[in-house]
Amino acid sequence: MAEDPKTATSPQDPGSQEEATSSERSESHAPSAEAKGADDSMRLVLLVMIVANQGMLDDLVTAMLDLGIQGTIIESKGLMSLLRDEMPIFSGLAAMIPQRTGSRVVLSVTAAGEIDQVFSFLQNELTDDERPMAFTVPIDRFMSGSKKS
């Protein structure tokens, strides 16, 4: 029987819904660096990367594997690319092959502590043209049918 999402607990602290959603706490009680590090290793974030440069996808996937980060890759298409492909004028053939024209969205739910390594890779190993758009979003609640590896 599927678990009711309303009863799903936050991964930060399985017993305490209040702690899981409270960000004010960290503001009112400034944690020590050690405590913050421990907190970061527990806190989950959603890492989103939009990879328009197909050539870089291989390197990015390899880096994620090296860092031990799992993820999901979705084929996608930018708004302007969609508009162009919808209204081809002189060259419309390539637009019909999604692998050639689209971008990829990489989604990964991971501990906040691991994100710095990803951003460090993006910053130091890739050029401006190669670098994907990347950002993280804090996760308030999380549930999954399978155990997180």
Partner: peptide, 17 residues
């Protein structure tokens, strides 16, 4: 420019598909 654009779409792997 138009000619090159038209030509660039004829990548072999696209044509073959």
């Amino acid at each position: 420019w138009i000619g090159v654009m038209v030509g660039l779409q004829l990548r072999w792997e696209v044509v073959r598909s």
